[in-house]
Every structure is written in structure tokens, then in C-alpha cells.
Amino acid sequence: MITKLIVRGLVAGLLAGLLAAVFAYAVGEPRIDQAIALEEAAAAVAAPAGDVGGTATGTHSHEAGTEEAAHSHGEEALVSRNGQRFGLFLALGLYGLAVGGLFALVYAAVRGRAGPRSEPALAVTLAAAAFLAVVLVPFVKYPANPPAVGDPGTIGQRTVLYLVAVAIGLLAVAAGVAAHRYASGGEPWVRWLVTGAAVLVPVVAAWALMPRIAEVPRGFPADLLWDFRVASLGTQVVFWAGIGVLFAFAARRRTPV
């Protein structure tokens, strides 16, 4: 039975990843192109800034700018935009396979022990909880940024903080599940109130203590930043909704758990 669930999870994850890739290609890629164009325009303006005066220093600055431009073009040629777009589908497909397998294992572990009684409802609820913990909670504190936003020197710090945010999201959801089960004997509104408090209190406390990262350059278009973040979050919504619905369809049974 576990093997069948894993196979269904892999298939559901792959299809959900491809659906998310289609959404990201249609909605997110135009924003990335706009951000890259802004980055290239800023680099073109900054490149001749040091080439003033005609002195040896100016010549050296010009040569350095030329080398930097050549390096930038070389990196761009190494992986073209078409190659990156293909990589988007490949990466999200592989990501879907990995997440789908893990999702099936978690589903098998919690089935019959927590959550709704019907298997489709359990799958959708589990996907929603995973989206809340892994995507939404970290996104609120550290939203995604397009190209030209972010200091390369802080990549390590940002990665660590994001992983800490994911861990906090997982712990908060686990606390919510435990509180929901603990208050099972009370009124429904009390049960959901306790569950919400168990999720929100640790998240709000952690967000107040964790450092804020503000690296959006002055003058960066606010509408482009907003559209990119909406597209990034929308991609995850499509992925987790897809994996929940597809797995619910694949794992459904006539009898309840």
C-alpha cells in the first residue's frame, strides 16, 4: 500500500510541478525579463562612470568596466534565457517528484491518526498545512525578490534566515495540530481559536525577533517588485493546490479512513 501511495505521490508531484512551471512561465518570466533589463541598463550606466579625465586611472577604469561587461555577457551566454526557461520546467518537475514522494510518506504516517476522516479531505488539508508552513510563513518575513534586488554578499545570511523561517513554520503548524487535538472536547469555535493562537503566537514572536533584510535599491519600480512577488507566491499556490487535489483524486477510496 505504501508503494502505491508513493507512486501516486510522485505522479501527482510531477504534474503539480509542471502546472506550476506553466504558471511561472506565463506570469513570472515577463517580470524577470523586466528586472534583467533594468539590471543591464543600470550596469550600462555605471560602466563608463569611471572613464573620466583621460588619465591612466581613467583608462584602467574603462578597461575594468569593459572586462566586467564582457564577464557579464559571458555569464549570460553561458546559460541563455531560453535555457533558463527550459530549466524552469526541469527544476519544478524534479522538485515536484521529490515533494510528491515526501508528501505521500507524510500522508501515510498521518492517515487515520489526525485531521479529517475522508482521504481526499486529508490530502487537501495536508497540502494546505504544508503550504502554510513551508511557503507562506517564510514568505511573509522574507518575500522573493527579482534579479537586480539583493546584495550577493548576503546570500549566505539570507539562505540561513529563510531556512530558519521554514523551520519556524513547520513547528508552528505542528503546534497548531497539537492544540487542535488537545481542544477536541470543547466547542468548535474554541477549538479553532486555540489552533489559530498556537500557530500565530510563535510566528509573530519569531518575526519580531528575526532581523529584517531590506535590499531593494532606491528607485526600483514598486509595481514590478509587487508583481514579481505575487507571481512567485502564485507559483507556489498552484503547486501545492495541484499536489493536494491530484493526490486526493489518486488516493480516494469509497470507505472513510
Rank of each mutant, 00 (worst) to 15 (best):
F103E: 03
A47H: 00
G115H: 03
T59M: 13
A91S: 13
I36H: 07
E75M: 14
V99F: 14
P138G: 04
F103N: 03
R111C: 07
V135S: 11
N82H: 11
A108F: 06
G115I: 01
G53H: 00
G58C: 04
S118M: 09
Q84N: 09
R117C: 00
A56V: 11
L136T: 01
I36K: 11
A35C: 01
V124N: 00
A133K: 08
E76K: 12
P138N: 07
R81Q: 13
L38G: 03
H60S: 12
A129P: 03
R113Y: 03
V137P: 01
G74H: 12
H62L: 15
A44I: 02
R31C: 13
V137Y: 01
L132N: 04
A44S: 08
E63V: 09
A77C: 03
Q34E: 15
E67C: 06
A77Q: 11
G58I: 04
L102V: 09
G96D: 10
Q34S: 15
A127Y: 00
S61K: 05
S118T: 15
L132D: 02
A46C: 09
A56W: 07
E75L: 15
H73K: 14
A129T: 06
R117Q: 10
V52W: 07
E63S: 11
G58A: 15
V106A: 12
A133C: 12
L102G: 11
V45S: 08
A70C: 04
T66N: 12
V99L: 12
H73C: 07
G96T: 09
H73A: 15
L38A: 00
P120Y: 03
A42E: 14
F103W: 02
H71D: 15
A35K: 00
V110A: 01
R31E: 15
A98E: 09
A91K: 10
D51M: 10
E39T: 06
R117V: 10
T55F: 08
G112T: 08
E68L: 13
A91D: 10
E39Y: 07
G58S: 15
E68G: 15
A133W: 05
R111V: 09
H71F: 13
L97W: 01
S61Y: 04
A121Q: 09
E67R: 12
R81A: 14
G74N: 12
R117M: 04
D33E: 15
L105S: 02
R31M: 13
V52P: 02
A108P: 07
L92Q: 11
A42G: 14
Y107Q: 07
A37P: 08
Q34F: 01
G58Y: 03
P116L: 07
A104R: 02
V99Y: 09
H71G: 15
R113E: 05
E75H: 10
R85E: 12
F131I: 02
F89M: 04
T55W: 08
F139D: 07
I36W: 06
L136E: 03
A41C: 09
R111N: 11
A108D: 13
A127C: 10
P48T: 05
T59W: 11
H73P: 02
A56M: 10
E119C: 09
I36Q: 14
E40K: 12
E76M: 06
L92V: 05
P138Y: 02
P48H: 08
G96Y: 07
V52L: 10
L97F: 04
